[in-house]
Amino acid sequence: MSAETKMPDIEVLMQAIPYARWLGISIDQRGNEITTVLHFSEKLIGNPVLPALHGGVIGAFLETTAIAQLAFEFSGGEAGAGGLPKPIGLTIDYLRSGKPVETYGRAVITKQGRRVATVHAEAWQEDRARPIAAAHGHFLLKAADEPADK
């Protein structure tokens, strides 16, 4: 954990991202533990018959969960949204259909390199032991390494 004196305020960072606000993602930060919360709204529905959350929404939520964890561990408390880690690749496993309720997310950094970090993220609803989806992905830590057209 790199935050010694000042813990980065990930909620402020998250609210600076228009898409995260639009989806309805907030951060529950307790000390050095970050849980992302996806507040349910009708626009998140992918299957109105079940009804179930859209797979893309769950993927986006897991990606945001991973980024929030990375931002927390690497920002040193000062990073703006512009310096956020960028996804290189993300694999999402859909384990159960997402109900139209609140969804929670947690991410663990499995490996931290100098430029790339590997992250595992999980999303669940009522029962932490029964995740609705899991993802693992690679993220580019230094924005300077990004190829052209920013």
Binding site: A16, I17, P18, Y19, A20, R21, W22, L23, G46, H54, G55, G56, V57, G59, A60, F61, E63, T64, G80, A81, G82, L84, K86, P87, L90, I92, K150
Partner: peptide, 27 residues
């Protein structure tokens, strides 16, 4: 759309939008 932006400094769309598009399009 402005509300789909992932990086307010550059105006680049969030990766999650691409995830949703590809997931839906694959379906």
């Amino acid at each position: 759309a402005e509300n789909l932006v992932g990086n307010p400094e550059t105006g680049v769309i969030h990766g999650g939008v691409i995830t949703s598009l590809l997931d839906n399009a694959c379906g």
